[in-house]
Design a protein around this nucleic acid. Structure first.
Lengths: 219, 219
DNA sequence: TAGAAAAATGTCTTATACGACATTTTATGT
DNA sequence: ACATAAAATGTCGTATAAGACATTTTTCTA
């Protein structure tokens, strides 16, 4: 029955291509839904101007299998995905991660915080102003912080997170304490970029509180 | 020929299990070699105190299959990996990525840029100072820029990249031009966070050049 | 436009992933 | 130490992924 088979194929391709509608349609899934590997591979192959036979030679995966994977007619095993990644010289995860997804989730949006404005959050040791807090799903979180602590002991626990941190001092003198380094003094205009996975904390030095602009970049 | 098949599988299991030795042994491979999914899953399951039957109930993958996957006796299909990821409430990529890798690649490092110091890069429209440029593999790039352009027309092409941008004005008045929005004026202390995938560019307004601190966050 | 070449897809066979259930191994209590 | 239960692993039948080759579709070229 070639006609029915063709009709089915047409639908499958359309579904896979009209990517945006898929996610929104499936409301039940909590976890980020499947990326379409097929479309991803097709785009990658076309972008390099390769034919199925060429990609087959590169990866060791047969042209027919590759074709079916591109059209989502089968779910490849991890081992074949690894051969494909190897043959195309890309990381396996890039084949399984739809970069358009993350971009699309954010695409075109923006948020503005005027001087002095922002979502405030005060602790015993710091006054934090979350900038552009209304914008969700950001890759990084910009924060303006006034550090009131004068000693690391004032903190019940040092900070530690799966992130990277960039800090630039706007006013005063900041001291960055870390388990790995000696205390680091930063004055106005100085900046530091460091790994937040090792425990760290901040204090002010001198008569005024340090004001720092920092960006937390999630890993 | 079932004997040969079994023998091959036995070797594959041993190779896959002795994970640490694999990387160093196979010198020919350029691409990051496979993470061991089996060990990864085993660790994840044990860390939650789940039995194979429990994890089977959660994921819909049979206990025996799960056991074989953990011991690398078979290469699961993407669809079963998706079921596992869903059932355990984790992203698929985290199962395929060795998290020690990404964190470890950066772990504990840091870089300091003193006020006025940094790697300079000047164009006709901007003077850029890359901060903490000696630190590689950062997730974000902090830059201090003096914008000399007064009109968007001075740019041969508007900027566009797979990234997000956070900007805070340090001095002067910055105007952010975008294909999606009206020009946005930002004064000292104002900040904006926006998607860099749509074309955009910056100009200064007024007698002095705007000085902005911005962070480019790669996607 | 017709014919040839190349590329993509379909068909069928083989290899292998997956699930149901049996067996072995490990934990637990008396 | 033994009996019992629970967990993990092995066995085998079924479903499906992957490869070899045939067929259809598309792309070139004259």
């Amino acid at each position: 029955m070639p006609e029915i088979s063709l009709a089915e194929r047409g639908d499958a391709v359309r579904e896979a291509t009209e990517y945006g509608e898929r996610d929104s349609a499936r409301a039940g899934d909590d976890i980020k839904s499947a990326v379409d590997i097929g479309a991803h591979l097709l785009k990658l192959r076309k972008s390099r101007g390769l034919t199925l036979q060429e990609v087959s030679a590169l990866t060791g995966v047969s042209a027919s299998a590759f074709s079916k994977i591109e059209r989502n007619e089968l779910s490849p095993t991890i081992s074949t995905m690894q051969r494909i990644a190897q043959g195309l010289g890309v990381e396996l995860v890039t084949l399984l991660t739809d970069q358009d997804n993350s971009v699309g989730a954010f695409g075109g949006r923006r948020s503005i915080s005027r001087a002095g404005a922002g979502s405030r959050h005060t602790t015993g040791t710091c006054n934090n102003v979350l900038l552009c807090a209304d914008l969700k799903n950001k890759r990084a979180t910009p924060i303006l912080t006034t550090v009131t602590a004068r000693s690391p002991d004032e903190y019940p626990a040092w900070a530690k997170s799966e992130a990277e941190i960039f800090v630039m001092v706007q006013e005063g003198t900041l001291v960055v304490h870390s388990r790995l380094y000696e205390p680091l003094e930063l004055n106005k205009g100085d900046s530091v970029y460091y790994d937040a996975t090792t425990e760290h904390t901040w204090t002010s030095k001198g008569p005024t509180n340090a004001v720092v602009l920092w960006v937390l970049v999630d890993l």
